[in-house]
Amino acid sequence: MALENADIDKIAILARLQVTPSETSDYANSISSILSLIDQMQQVSTEGVEPLSNPHDASQRLRKDEVTCDNQREAFIALAPAAQDGLYLVPKVLD
């Protein structure tokens, strides 16, 4: 399936990626060729075949809902590109 530049713009927004106009056609071309490769999947019938999401058909192991480690707020906040008073800083969201 061939993608148009407009499709790339839409996917880029969903993926939260800025794509410049000069990059758009390159992505449209390369992703279209990847999608042609992917479309080979349609050659085989998978009717009645259950999807496999974990190689062992295992489901997520759950643990007891209890505190298992200390609060590491300072260690984590120290990694932030912008923080103040123990809070993450982002551009203003509400006027």
């Binding site: 996917i11 990626l17 992703i31 999608l35 992917i38």
Partner: peptide
């Protein structure tokens, strides 16, 4: 994300998003 990721990573993110 545009400035932090390289081309192949962005391409795979877009294929996956699609």
């Amino acid at each position: 994300r545009a400035e932090g990721f390289g081309t192949e990573v962005k391409r795979r993110i877009m294929v996956g998003t699609y």
